[in-house]
C-alpha cells in the first residue's frame, strides 16, 4: 500500500528505513509507537525527523540502534544500513555496529554520562569496545575527539567526573564519544533541547561541520522546526507513529503537502508575521492506545472529510515529495 521513496540523488543511501513498525505489546493493548516509517539518509547529509513528543520519533531512533526495550519490539519493516538489514541482525552483531558504525546522542546530557565514572573511563571503554588498540592509543583518540568538539585542555578534562561539566560541555563529550569511531550514521535524539539557545547554536554548527567533513549521515530528531530549517537537507514529519510527509527541507517548509506540516509551520513564531496571532493546531494528540482508523490527524484537520476515515496512502505527489494525505495542499505558503 505504501510506496518506498526512491533515492532521487545519485549514490546509494547510507541508511534506508523502510516501512518500519515498532510496537509495544502491553497489558493494556498494543501501542503502535512506530507504524510505517520510511526515510533515507545519504552520506554527509542531515535528515530532520520532526514531530510532537509521543509521535514515535525517539522510538524510531532507538529502533535503528536496536535499543528498543521490552515490551517494545520491531514487528515489521527493514532498516537497511549499507544494504544490510539491521532488524534481522543478532544482538551481538548489532552490538559490534553500535557506537562503532552507528552512534547515538541522547536528549538530556545530564543523564547520559555515568555519574560515578570519569570521562576518560567512559571514552576509553568506547574505543576499546570496537578497536584493538593499546590503552595509551585509546586515550590519545579520546583526547583528539574532545579537541574535535571544541573542548579546551582535554587532558585535564579527561580526568574529570561528569558533574564537573556544564550541560553544554557534557553534550559535547557525548558527541565526542559518538564521533570516536567516525561512524557512518549518527542518530541524534533532540540533543540540543535541554541546552541554552546560545549553546544550542554552537552545537548545531559543530554538528553540521563534522558531518560535512567526515561524510557521516545524520538523523536529527527534534520537535523544533527552526532547528531543522537551518540544519537539515531533508525532513521527515511524524505524526502518531507514521511519517506523514517527507522531502527536501526547503520544499517541504515552503510548500507543505500535509495539513499537519502546515499546522506545525504555522505555530512557529516568526519575525515576518509579528503582530498576527499564532496559528495553533486545534485539539490534542490522540492516545496511542486507540488510534482512530484512517488518518490519525483527521480529528484536528481543517480539511477532513468522510474519505479520511480510510487509511490514506503514502504517495509521491511531486518528485521526491511524499505525503500521507488524500487532499494535499497544492499551493505554497506565504512565508
Amino acid at each position: 500500500m505504501s510506496a518506498v521513496p526512491a533515492s532521487a540523488a545519485p549514490g546509494a543511501p547510507t541508511l534506508e528505513v523502510r516501512n518500519l513498525r515498532t510496537h509495544f505489546l502491553t497489558r493494556a493493548g498494543v501501542v503502535k509507537a512506530v507504524d510505517d516509517v520510511s526515510f533515507t539518509v545519504r552520506s554527509g547529509k542531515v535528515l530532520g525527523l520532526v514531530g510532537e513528543s509521543g509521535s514515535g520519533k525517539s522510538v524510531t531512533g532507538f529502533s535503528i540502534l536496536g535499543l528498543v526495550d521490552p515490551p517494545g519490539r520491531i514487528v515489521g519493516g527493514q532498516i537497511l544500513f549499507k544494504g544490510q538489514d539491521l532488524a534481522t541482525l543478532s544482538e551481538e552483531a548489532m552490538r559490534k555496529l553500535r557506537g562503532n558504525r552507528i552512534a547515538m546522542i541522547f536528549q538530556d546530557p545530564m543523564m547520559t554520562l555515568n555519574p560515578v565514572l570519569r570521562i576518560d573511563t567512559q571514552m576509553i571503554e568506547t574505543v576499546l569496545a570496537h578497536a584493538r588498540v593499546s590503552r595509551e592509543e585509546a586515550r590519545q583518540r579520546a583526547r583528539d575527539a574532545l579537541g574535535q568538539v571544541g573542548i579546551a585542555s582535554p587532558d585535564e578534562r579527561l580526568r574529570s567526573y561528569p558533574h564537573q561539566f556544564s550541560g553544554g560541555m557534557r553534550q559535547r563529550v557525548a558527541i565526542a564519544i559518538a564521533l570516536l569511531h567516525k561512524p557512518d550514521v549518527i542518530v541524534a535524539d533532540e540533543p540540543t533541547t535541554a541546552l541554552d539557545v546560545t549553546i544550542q547554536g554552537q552545537i548545531l554548527a559543530e554538528a553540521q561541520k563534522l558531518c560535512a567533513q567526515t561524510g557521516t549521515a545524520l538523523v536529527w530528531i527534534t520537535h523544533d522546526l527552526s532547528v531543522v530549517a537551518g540544519l537539515a537537507d531533508d525532513i521527515a514529519v511524524m505524526y502518531a507513529g507514521k511519517v506523514v510527509e517527507n522531502g527536501p527541507v526547503e520544499q517541504v517548509l515552503d510548500a507543505p503537502l500535509h495539513p499537519y506540516t502546515l499546522g506545525l509551520i504555522g505555530s512557529v513564531p516568526s519575525r515576518n508575521r509579528r503582530g498576527e496571532p499564532l496559528r495553533q493546531i486545534p485539539g490534542m494528540t490522540p492516545s496511542m492506545l486507540n488510534l482512530p482508523a484512517g488518518c490519525a490527524f483527521r480529528a484536528r484537520c481543517p480539511r477532513a472529510e468522510a474519505r479520511c476515515a480510510e487509511p490514506p496512502p503514502f504517495a509521491e505527489y511531486r518528485p521526491g515529495r511524499f505525503a500521507r494525505c488524500i487532499h494535499p495542499h497544492e499551493e505554497a505558503v506565504a512565508a
Binding site: 515498532t22 509495544f24 520519533k57
Partner: peptide, 14 residues
C-alpha cells in the same frame, strides 16, 4: 526523560 518514556502506555483503566 522523553527518550525512554516515549510510547510508554498509560496506566490501565480499572
Amino acid at each position: 526523560m522523553s527518550t525512554t518514556t516515549a510510547g510508554a502506555p498509560p496506566a490501565a483503566v480499572p
